[in-house]
Design a protein around this nucleic acid. Structure first.
Lengths: 207, 207
DNA sequence: TGTACATCAGTGAACGCGCGTTCACTGATGTAC
DNA sequence: TGTACATCAGTGAACGCGCGTTCACTGATGTAC
């Protein structure tokens, strides 16, 4: 995976890369990372293939750039979610408090079909491409760190605590959330009942 | 997706199809469903491409055959798991009972990297190919039905019950299991702590 | 501010390769007498 | 049981298409005086 290193990143090139990446996300969701051809991506972005190879050494480098961009995007989204959550008022009934924590979660994750598909594609792609494992795991770590901070804050703000070790509770929530996301891909709805049940089962008011 | 209907299924043809499907699973795990070429699959199975097109109209039909075969395989595996679970003795300590239920779960699911990858590939592929959605969902339904029976039996046998609605408890277990499977793809271990924590949190001895 | 030149960024034609698909063929398997 | 023939199943060459990648080019952007 050789890199395009020598060319300086002008504003124009940055914009071209942004458009190519945005088009790539669309095509990856539609056809898969392996299935989306460089030509399709370029056409969707309004460029010819030469523009692609002037900006990325190959498809893997574009995927890598996407992962790195996701880290930044996720970081920004999480900061907003934390801020909004901490600014919101809390109520007193336990079930409502649970809903409050869930609301924090919604802020964080996405329900958008395209994003869900691409995140799953990235996972499988990274599991197979050794060169992408490390950056992908860095992305996941960053998400986990942000989620940890968010849920920690939300629980504290709501006056709740886990009845299980914090990190395990966190992972259980995340696993349930991921499962619901996949369900969404096949048209199912009602995302919150299950998360609500789980949270009710593993939280209690702080003594 | 035209089908190869007119040719009768002799024993020889059935064997050829089996070998092609087995090779396809290997290649799908290695390169993805879209990324694995018909030529690679045939070579891995020890045939030329003509043999492939004599048995399947195209790659989609092979995927469909794989899904249908999975349903049968899963059904057989589940029956065995139920039988073994019901034949096993139970102990008295609650934590041990929980372990017993988990053991039933291990019988059911797989930890094999290749299978995990292919199942994930199938999910994404089916989410995009309308023609494969229905058979894929039938496969998932069958798995769910089997799992439901297994956990129901195991809980009863251990003298435990969920503190949450049964189907929700089941889905929480499944979601956690799936999450652990994905973790496995990146080299993580210790699959059981999380499942154990969850089960402890949502079960109690039958009154 | 205007001109002349240099560099840059994307164009689009060209190349070769590998893939999906077809099909005339041949050796293997099955059947009739 | 042996022979003659028919059908079957997989072979492998051939075709055309689309893709990844390269590269000489051109219009756009930037710079020096």
């Amino acid at each position: 995976m050789p890199e395009v290193v020598d060319k300086p990143l002008t504003a124009r090139r940055a914009q071209t890369q942004e458009r190519l990446m945005a088009a790539a996300v669309r095509m990856f969701a539609e056809r898969g990372i392996i299935g989306a051809s460089v030509e399709e991506i370029c056409e969707a972005a309004g460029f010819t293939r030469g523009a692609f190879y002037s900006n990325f050494a190959d498809k893997d480098e574009l995927v890598l750039a996407l992962i790195r961009k996701s880290i930044r995007t996720q970081f920004a989204a999480a900061e907003q979610a934390v801020a909004r959550t901490m600014a919101a008022p809390t109520k007193l009934d336990t079930a409502d408090l649970v809903s409050f924590v869930l609301a924090a979660f919604v802020e964080f994750g996405t329900e958008d079909r395209e994003t869900i598909l691409v995140e799953r594609e990235l996972l499988l792609y990274a599991a197979r491409q050794p060169a992408l494992r490390t950056p992908y795991l860095a992305f996941v770590d960053e998400c986990d760190r942000q989620l940890r901070a968010l849920i920690s804050d939300a629980l504290a703000h709501a006056g709740l605590e886990f009845t299980v070790p914090f990190d395990e509770g966190l992972t259980l929530l995340k696993a349930t959330w991921e499962h619901e996301q996949l369900t969404t891909l096949f048209g199912a709805e009602s995302k919150w009942a299950l998360m609500h049940t789980l949270l009710m089962a593993i939280t209690r008011p702080v003594a």
